[in-house]
Amino acid sequence: MLLSLRKVTKHFPVQRGLWGRPTAFVKAVDMVSLEVGAGQIVGIVGESGCGKSTLGRCAVGLFEPTSGEVLWDNLEIRGLAASQKRAHQRKFQVVFQNPYASLNPRQKIKKILLEPLEVHGLLRPTERLEFVKGLLAQVGLTEEDLSKYPHEFSGGQRQRIGLARAMACQPDMIVLDEPVSSLDVSVQASVLNLLSRLNQEKGIAYLFISHDLQVVGYLSQRLLVMYLGAVVESGKTEEVLRTPRHPYTKALLAASQGRWVMIEGEPPNPAKAPWGCTFHPRCPFAEDRCRQEKQQLLGDDNAWKVACWKWDRL
């Protein structure tokens, strides 16, 4: 497996006691397991505060999980020596949501794209410029753009530059954290087409994180639905979207199609997660058991899984 997360949990302290010892935590990610194979696209969907970005950052080693394991090429990253870790780091890249904040405004595009090659010592110095020109062409930009600064580009173009920067490391996998949510529909379509092409031609795997079920559903082969740090449903994308089993997935699907959504309220503050099933305060089908006891994510790894007491009676 290219990437495996095993029962990954990430807590952040939100309150500290008198001696600076944390006294309260946000469970940003709670016991999440997932696998991404070579060339595969796995989608993660959920609303703000569900932990999807934290999970993405754990996957590329930007955050160290509180507990659980992250494996790159079947190697646990906690056990890797610094030099080994850097060598592997190259293969796991990330593209962030905000194309205005993720590019250094004082660097020219040439510098932005050459830097990863220099850091990782890829290619001979004389070959690097040619390679970078090739990258730009792949993402639909031109050679003249090399001498420009990020502010001279539109949002869609900046997202392409961010993608080219990630590609410069010749990665096996890219974590895409809301890569199209700040873009207009027509620009979004061109970036999605580009992502799809790079996946097919170069075999790069993606962990695609978004709040938009249609976007994730369009691109991904497997899908995980997250709510308040935990996975509530997962499976093959077509399967999950054809017959969503968790009431939250049903609501997300309805919302993404402009249909009526049966759930009320908003996601609660993750620092004060409800007892039992964390979704019960918003669930129209909640019963006593849901308020007291949390259902685990059950099902078949290869087909689908759902964490709901009542999925078969809905």
Binding site: Q188, A189, L192, Q214, Y218
Partner: peptide
């Protein structure tokens, strides 16, 4: 605009650009 909207049913086909 309508053809550029990603939909699950369009999976595998490029979106209109």
């Amino acid at each position: 605009l309508l053809a550029a909207l990603p939909e699950v049913s369009h999976k595998g086909r490029p979106l209109y650009n």
